[in-house]
């Protein structure tokens, strides 16, 4: 494996790391002698629309630096702010901690991105979890397209992971328009709230289904006889079968 392939393999490991455990995975990578990933990239800049600031982000140290003020997209900003207010209300109603951001799209004042991330890390009880959802609002096409991704890692004397994907495409009602920003934004977040609650409830059905059909179908809790095996008889059966076979052989001679 050359250096390039090593970096690629290590990047794959990092992208697969469970919530809050990226540093542990990174340590494993370093032990496997992967060259440092801190290359001289110039454009590691991000922006926060709420504080109207752009900054440089160091992914290894997880630190922001070099803040600079940025001007928002003038035409899109009122609707973006309305979505942001509605998203923050939604976040505090349903998430225990978590972050939401709303971004406008450069060159398209009718398109917005809403993101929600909620993490829980509990290393002393060996688990971590992450809820991520992202929605693209397109006022012109009257479409809301979203995805919800869930990861849970439980690692006490083992490694058990829940991983889910959910993609949804919803037609927005005609009452939604940028001229009616506040009410439209609330309506959009109400649609998201309903979709996410419905999805969360459907997970219960998935758990039920996997427990009733898959888990039981793979291995029974007890044999049909509802009793554990009689191991002496398990060996005896075989010996018995052999005796019968031998007897048959003797009988025919």
């Amino acid at each position: 494996m050359d250096a390039e392939e090593r970096i690629q393999a290590a990047s794959k490991f990092l992208l697969q790391s469970p919530p809050g455990e990226i540093n542990d995975v990174l340590n494993g990578d370093e032990a496997a002698r992967v060259p440092g990933a801190d290359s001289e990239e110039e454009d590691d800049r991000f922006w926060d629309p709420r504080s109207r600031t752009s900054f440089r982000f160091d992914h290894i140290a997880l630190e922001a630096s070099e803040p600079e003020p940025i001007e928002p997209e003038e035409e899109a900003e009122p609707f973006r702010i309305a979505l942001e207010i509605a998203a923050l209300t939604y976040l505090s109603a349903h998430f225990h901690g978590g972050v939401t951001s709303v971004f406008s799209t450069q060159g398209n004042p009718h398109r917005f991105t809403i993101q929600v991330v909620a993490n829980k890390y509990n290393p002393s009880n060996f688990w971590s979890g992450r809820w991520r959802s992202e929605y693209i609002v397109n006022l012109q096409e009257r479409k809301l397209e979203g995805k919800i991704l869930l990861n849970v890692h439980y690692y006490e004397q083992g490694n058990v992971q829940l991983s889910t994907t959910h993609a949804v495409s919803i037609e927005l009602p005609p009452t939604i328009s940028s001229s009616n920003a506040s009410a439209s934004a609330s309506k959009i977040l109400a649609v998201i709230e309903s979709e996410e609650s419905k999805y969360q409830a459907s997970l219960n059905e998935a758990y039920q289904d996997m427990g009733d059909k898959t888990f039981k179908g793979l291995r029974r809790a007890l044999p049909m006889t509802r009793a554990k095996l009689d191991w002496d008889r398990v060996l005896g059966y075989k010996i018995g079968a052999e005796l019968t076979a031998n007897k048959g052989a003797f009988g025919s001679s």
């Binding site: 109603a93 998430f95 225990h96 909620a118 829980k120 869930l150 083992g158 888990f215």
Partner: peptide, 26 residues
Amino acid sequence: RNLLQEVYFGKTRDVVFDLRSLDDLE
């Protein structure tokens, strides 16, 4: 098998419902 049942269907589900609440927290 009991342990797996508890972790797969109990623990991972609890974490999901710890991340997001179906009821309105506000």
